[in-house]
Computed example of a mutant assay.
Amino acid sequence: MVHNLIAFMLAATLLTLTPGLDTALVLRTAAAEGRQQAMRAALGINAGCLVWGAVIALGLGALLAVSTTLFTLFKLCGAAYLCWLGLHMLLRPRTHFASNASDDTLKSSHIGWGMKGLLSNVLNPKVGIFYVSFLPQFIPAQHSFVGWTLILVMLHIGINLTWFMLLIHATRPLTQLLRRANVIKWLDRVTGGLFLFFAAHLAFGRR
C-alpha cells in the first residue's frame, strides 16, 4: 500500500507540473485579478477533479472509456466552452478591473471564476479517460475500488492545490505591473489564444 501511494504521488506530481489549461487559467487569473480570484479558479478546477473522481468511483467512467459517442459529446461540449472563453478574451480584452465594485458584484465574480475552473475540468473528457486508465494501477488488490479511488483523487487534489498556491504566490512581485491596462489586454489575448489552442487540441485530438 505504501509503495502504491508513493508511486501515485510521484506520477501525479509529474502530471500536475506539466503545463496545461489549468496552469494557464490560474496564472492568468492570479496575475491580472489577484490571489482571491485565482484561488477560486483553483478550487473550481479541483472540484472538477473531485466530480470526475466520484464518477469513476461509481463506475460511470467505464462508460466514457468504451462509448465513442459519449466521449465525442463531452469532448465537443468542452471544446465549445473553451472556444467561447478564448474568443471572448481575444475579441473583447479588458483594460482594467473594477476595484470599487459592490459586494454583490464581487460575489458574482467570485462564483464565476470558480465555475470557470470547474467547467474547464468537468467538460474535458480526457480527465475522465485519464482517471479510468491511471487510477486503477495504484489500487491494491482486494481493496475497495471506491474508497481507494476517492483517496487517490484527494491526494491528486492536494498536489494540485499546492502547485497552484506556489504559482499564485509567484505572481505577487509582479502584481502592479500586471495590472496595467496594456498588460491586461495582452494577458487576455494570450490566454484567449491558449484557450483556443486547447479547444482545438481537445476537439481534434485522438482519444
Rank of each mutant, 00 (worst) to 15 (best):
I139G: 00
V122P: 10
T18A: 15
P125W: 13
F138W: 02
T105S: 13
A32Y: 13
I139D: 01
Y81W: 02
A199W: 10
P19S: 05
A79L: 05
T18H: 10
G192L: 08
G193Y: 14
M1K: 07
Y131G: 14
S120R: 06
G147Y: 02
R189F: 12
M165D: 14
F195N: 04
F197Y: 11
A11M: 11
G53H: 14
A11Y: 09
R207C: 12
G147L: 03
L167Q: 13
L202H: 00
I111K: 08
H88W: 08
N121C: 07
L152F: 14
L167S: 12
F8N: 06
L87V: 01
I184A: 04
I129S: 11
V51L: 15
I111E: 05
F97T: 09
G86C: 04
L152S: 07
A101K: 10
V26Y: 12
A101W: 06
I45C: 02
F74G: 11
Q137S: 05
A181D: 03
M165G: 14
V127Y: 02
F130H: 11
V122C: 02
R207P: 07
W163A: 13
V66G: 05
V183P: 02
V55L: 05
G193L: 12
D103Q: 06
Q137K: 00
L167E: 15
I111N: 09
G114Y: 08
V146Q: 04
R189M: 07
N46D: 11
V55A: 11
T18S: 08
D22M: 08
H3S: 14
A32P: 15
L123G: 07
S108W: 01
L196A: 02
G114Q: 01
P125K: 15
L202C: 00
L50P: 12
A200M: 02
I139S: 01
P19H: 13
A54P: 04
A181I: 12
V183H: 07
